[in-house]
Amino acid sequence: MLRYVGRRVAGLALVLLIVLTLVFFMLRAAPGGPVDAYLGMNPTPEKRAEVEHRFGLDQPIWVQYAKFLGNLASGDLGNSLFSDRPVSAVIGERLPVTLELSLTAFLFWVALGLVAGAVAARRRDSFVDGCVRVISVVALSVPSFWLALVLVVVFGLYVKGVLPSSGWTPFSQDPWGNLRGVVLPAFALGLGSGAIIARTLRASMIETAQADYVSFARAMGMSERRVLRQITLRNAIIPTATVIGLMLGVFVSGTVLIENVFNIPGIGQTVVGAFTRHDYPLAIACTLITASVFLVANLVVDLLYFVLNPRIRAGFLNGTAR
């Protein structure tokens, strides 16, 4: 088990290196550059050369890459080309904001999705089930950027003072204000994922309910309650866990859009600025952190799957799985 985790972590580091290398070269291959963004219109050639030298861009690209790798190995991500602040400080400031948003949305929507799915499956074809099915289809069809904009407009223009629709209040400053501020962006961030989770659980519970092992347990006089808890849910949660794992990506990458619409100073907002201004170090750092969060979360889900599904566990212990 420990060896498995060790191997996964090593694989994870390799994936990160590949991602960072790709981003490194793609940034430099993109038209324009930090010098233009930094100096504005028509700079003198001397001025240009000076800034290029300061950013280290006058060196051959392979040298730049080698330097980048060296710094990365020593944990130095460099300074932002524009604010000249250490990139790690910027990330340290913005990451908690994004994590709070993502995590709140994730927990809320996973919980709501699971409860809605379970209730709908239990009361199949009832009014509640109909509601869950209709609402989830609508939720799936609504693009999150549109939903985010509508929420901003509605709560910013028409229903004022109920919930803040823009900006961010740090938790340390005003805990209550902070929590109220998370509500709308978290809602918009995970609506679609919540719907998918609900639908997946509902479908797999209905499928499980027709399984031979459910009939046998009933035929042995097991109560509906216990069948539901110990058998149906227990088995239906396995495919649902896979889907929840896939949804993790949405909760991480979705923040780019949501933070920009709701004007939230998190990684998602930073990353857009960093890429448009060709702020190489900051862009790379944002990529690193986003990819890490995603990969670690995925690893956690895989390990959870391992706990949930005895088949995978047995296959692994027998050495038939990787």
Partner: peptide, 19 residues
């Protein structure tokens, strides 16, 4: 069910919960 009327199912391989 179970206590007075028991059942031996057709497909033993799938009649116990796999989890």
């Amino acid at each position: 069910r179970g206590d007075r009327i028991g059942l031996i199912p057709q497909r033993p391989m799938t009649s116990l919960s796999p989890a």
